[in-house]
Design a protein around this nucleic acid. Structure first.
Length: 855
RNA sequence: GCCGGGAUGGCGGAACUGGCAGACGCAGCGGACUCAAAAUCCGCCGACCUUCGGGUCUUGGGGGUUCGACUCCCCCUCCCGGCACCA
């Protein structure tokens, strides 16, 4: 009596889902249509700019890329289907060191290596079906892009925001060139000469004055509520704003006869706790402090000790535990005068003082600073209590603290006229006093430093500057841009900047005097390229300006930016800086580039980040070949919520591949009713099965739409789609029996395909066509859900007794509290549990549960 | 040390505002189809106890609030990320 459903194996092969066949077919079609994903230049639709961070063209995509782009692509497709004018571009962050390394290793010119990598990766992206507007492709290593880096540099220079300064860099004596920080091994040696210690050298470098925007970069973080709090916190830490006071300690001439001469007569210290200054018992200098060179010149013993301190400090920094370093110091033999109490305090040099923070000098207050305390104990310096904390015990107002006491809830003692003041009050009054008397002032210090953009490398944007003997530093005139990066440069044997060995490049004419001039041979940090590339996408072929302001204004800010959290600081802070600068230039009006930021998690395998050395790398090409692009993409969305790390499992993608096969089968099955449905109108013909299907359909639309508009938990979107598919595939008998109206069946399949489209575009397009749809799926409208249809008619209400689940009752959805409670109490199992007991409380949470409390 | 994030079956994960813990998937087990296998389909699938009705326990650990806690509060452990003698 039971009809056996036809086994799948008897189905002709070509009816089964074959990802290679489907994907090749659509890949070919999409290739032929250059306009497919083009953003409109003029559109009455609302704009939506969705962007994924552009990759470095290393030669092959990895799974992290696939995940990143799968998220962005799903969003772009969803927005298209919601009738937005979508901008979804892609490009290449294609300057940088690996191209030079490859050039040295394989003897391939960096340009050739880079462009061939781009070709490979672009082919991969296309095969994966990502919907990019390739007519807007930006390649940062090409002159039509980097000339605008140079143009911006000239603007920075014009505004006084690009300047030259001596700065310390890593120098390998064997390579005879400068190394990036990443090229210095953990033990402080060169990556190519593992037994050679890297030195620090002073070099003239170009800087961009990002610190001009420190405050704005910090304050505007508060407005970025579409950014993860984590990233905002990281940027706040990075900027590191700190309010404090600068205080000048005069050198004691009586003691310092001669020493400390030309370098100055005062030491300026920065402190956040000027209220503790009466407890200062020494002044501590960073070992690199300029005053020391002066002293050390006449004191070789001191010079040696200071050098040791420098080495200790640098080693600790390289190992990354500067916080753990054993504190060492040396007394200079000299003294300074505390301007508040005119006391003479010894001047020391210590390895825990950093030259690049504050002024490189501190006043040491052992009683109220942990580091100073530790140092003072070690070298037997005086520890003088000047703050008494408020006592816990209200009987006594002040407590004898355990040293060091670093709290702010106290009162000053032993502090002359300031005795009795509260800390906060004292800080204000003492800062004001210092300012009135010309030996200090309240100030704000930042951890953020100006951005050193000079790189002694070949594969980067040439800095458009000239050095003329007569006119000094002269910018290249705008009309002479771009300064083209020459090819055929021997980078393997270069000493210093490779461009320095190219006479045709170096030798130029001074635009001012017409005499000979030398070109700048350093190139720009590649973070310059990525600081503004997303503006170029809006007007990528402009040869008169980096972009047209009006066009950029239409698209900006970026509605959604998606990328790895590893760029939370550098790239995202430089980009914000660049945007503020462009606004001040009048190019744009927005002060921030990115409205909403999403940072996706890493792709890991076997509990570790994928890496060649661990041998746990999963190749996207292999996944596409074995399971298809749709499966690879769908799995990267299904395996974990996008913001969390994703643990790659090969068996998992296999499961997704099976799901795609099931949805293919369910949608394409020609399941006609064997019983002819009656002629009644549809609404009256819908029995319980039809209603169940309809309800599930609308619930699924709601769930997936909510995920797009909210948390982006696409893993649950996809499970919702699986549930719907499971329900429909389990209804074959109802369908055969004519219990599902044919129009419902068609509608369900249609909607399922629409819901699948953002995640698995190849299969969705194929099924869409198979359903007889003529219009491009991208232009189809995202389905709307009907809350009334999604609503359950009957509810199964769990019944708890004293919080423990004991039974369930089924009630109509609109039941009153009274009705539900009566039903629950009448239930047999419930009766058994409450028999002989007293009902204390009856709780009904509408639509959710009943809890009966008994004694 | 400071600031984030996290810990749920054998595994990846779900549970949106305090209301049925374990959706969906993987792996596993049983069955159907097959000469057989693969593929596919159907069923079972947290642990322990069970008289097979069910019962007890269970969301890193300990306490608390509540009729009710994965969810809120306090304390603790471990893992991941960032910052770190920042004066």
């Amino acid at each position: 009596m039971q009809e056996e459903t036809e086994p799948a194996s008897s189905r002709p092969n070509d009816e089964r889902y074959d990802p290679q066949r489907v994907e090749t077919k659509w890949f070919t079609r999409w290739q032929a249509d250059a306009q497919l994903y083009a953003a409109d230049r003029d559109s009455t639709k609302k704009k939506y700019y969705v962007l994924e961070m552009l990759p470095y063209p290393s030669g092959a995509l990895h799974m992290g890329h696939v995940r990143n782009y799968a998220i962005g692509d799903a969003l772009a497709r969803y927005m298209w289907m919601n009738d937005y004018n979508v901008l979804h571009p892609m490009g290449w962050d294609s300057f940088g060191l690996p191209a030079e390394n490859a050039a040295i290793q394989n003897n391939t010119p960096p340009r050739q290596w880079t462009l061939s990598n781009i070709a490979k990766m672009k082919a991969q992206m296309k095969r994966l079906g990502f919907a990019y507007d390739w007519s807007r492709e930006v390649t940062t290593c090409l002159p039509d892009y980097y000339r605008w880096n140079q143009w911006f540099f000239l603007k920075f220079y014009e505004k006084g925001l690009a300047y030259r300064k001596k700065s310390r860099v890593n120098w390998c004596p064997k390579c005879a060139t400068v190394l990036a920080n990443e090229q210095v091994l953990a033990n402080g040696c060169c990556w190519r000469h593992e037994d050679t210690l890297v030195e620090q050298r002073e070099l003239e470098q170009w800087f961009l004055r990002i610190t001009k925007y420190s405050d704005e970069l910090l304050c505007d973080l508060d407005k970025l509520d579409g950014w993860p709090e984590k990233v905002r916190t990281m940027q706040r830490n990075w900027i590191g704003r700190s309010e404090g006071t600068l205080i000048d300690f005069k050198l004691d001439y009586a003691e310092n006869h001669g020493g400390f001469g030309p370098a100055g007569s005062t030491i300026t210290v920065f402190t956040t706790r000027v209220d503790t200054i009466f407890g200062a018992t020494s002044v501590q200098l960073a070992p690199q402090h300029p005053l020391i060179a002066d002293l050390a010149a006449s004191n070789p013993d001191l010079a040696t000790k200071v050098d040791e301190l420098i080495v200790e400090q640098r080693k600790a920094k390289e190992v990354g535990d500067i916080g753990e370093i054993e504190k060492h110091g040396v007394f200079t033999g000299r003294y300074a005068i505390n301007p508040f109490n005119k006391e003479k305090v010894p001047i020391w040099v210590a390895n825990y003082i950093l030259m690049d923070y504050g002024t490189g000098a501190i006043m040491s207050v052992p009683a109220h600073d942990e580091r100073d305390y530790e140092f003072a104990k070690k070298y037997k310096l005086e520890i003088r209590l000047v703050i008494l904390p408020l006592a816990d015990d209200p009987e006594e107002t002040m407590a004898e603290p355990q040293l060091p006491y670093v709290g702010h809830d106290g009162m000053l003692i032993n502090s002359g006229p300031y005795g009795g003041l509260a800390c906060a009050d004292a800080i204000k009054k003492m800062s004001a006093f210092a300012e009135q008397n010309g030996f200090g002032k309240a100030t704000v210090t930042y951890r953020l430093k100006d951005w050193g953009i000079s790189r002694q490398r070949y594969w980067g944007t040439p800095i458009p500057m000239l050095y003329c003997e007569k006119d000094g530093i002269v910018p290249v005139p705008e009309k002479d841009l771009p300064v083209i990066l020459p090819e055929a440069v021997d980078i393997a044997h270069a000493t210093g900047s490779p461009l320095g060995s190219v006479p045709e490049f170096v030798n130029a004419t001074c635009p001012k005097c017409g005499g000979p001039a030398r070109r700048e041979t350093d190139t720009m940090d590649t973070f310059v390229d990525s600081s503004w590339y997303f503006y170029r996408y809006t007007d990528p072929h402009n040869d008169r300006a980096p972009f047209d302001s009006r066009i950029a204004q239409y698209w900006f800010p970026i509605d959604q930016y998606i990328g790895g959290v590893e760029h939370a600081i550098l790239h995202l802070i430089y980009s914000r800086f660049w945007t503020k600068f462009m606004r001040d230039l009048g190019l744009i009006t927005n002060g921030e580039p990115v409205e909403r930021l999403f940072t996706q998690g890493m792709v890991i395998k076997d509990g570790a980040k994928m890496s060649k050395s661990l041998g746990n790398v999963v190749s996207p090409d292999e996944m596409v070949a074995r399971y298809g692009a749709d499966a690879a993409r769908l799995y990267s969305l299904f395996a974990a919520p996008p913001d969390r790390d994703l643990d790659w499992q090969d068996s998992g993608i296999e499961g997704i591949r099976k799901f795609l096969g099931r949805i293919y089968r369910v949608v394409t099955e020609q399941n006609e009713a064997s019983v002819v449905p009656s002629e009644l109108p549809v609404d009256n013909r819908r029995g319980p099965a039809a209603r169940t299907l309809q309800r599930k359909l609308h619930q699924t639309i709601k769930r997936i739409s909510d995920d797009f508009n909210g948390r982006w938990h696409f893993n649950t979107s996809i499970s919702a789609l699986m549930e719907l598919n499971n329900l429909l595939s389990g209804m074959s008998q109802d369908i055969a029996a004519g219990n599902i109206p044919p129009e419902d069946l068609t509608e369900t399949k249609r909607v399922m395909v629409l819901l699948l489209a953002p995640f698995a575009p190849y299969l969705a397009h194929e099924l869409w066509e198979m359903l007889g749809e003529k219009e491009n799926l991208l232009k189809a409208s995202w389905p709307k859900y009907d809350a009334a249809l999604a609503k359950e008619e009957e509810l199964e209400i769990p019944v708890q007794i004293n919080g423990k689940l004991r039974s369930r009752v089924t009630v109509p959805a609109e039941s009153t509290q009274e009705f539900v409670l009566d039903r629950a109490l009448a239930d047999e199992k419930v009766q058994a549990f409450i028999a002989g007991k007293q009902i204390v409380k009856k709780i009904y949470v509408p639509g959710k549960l009943v809890n009966i409390v008994v004694k």
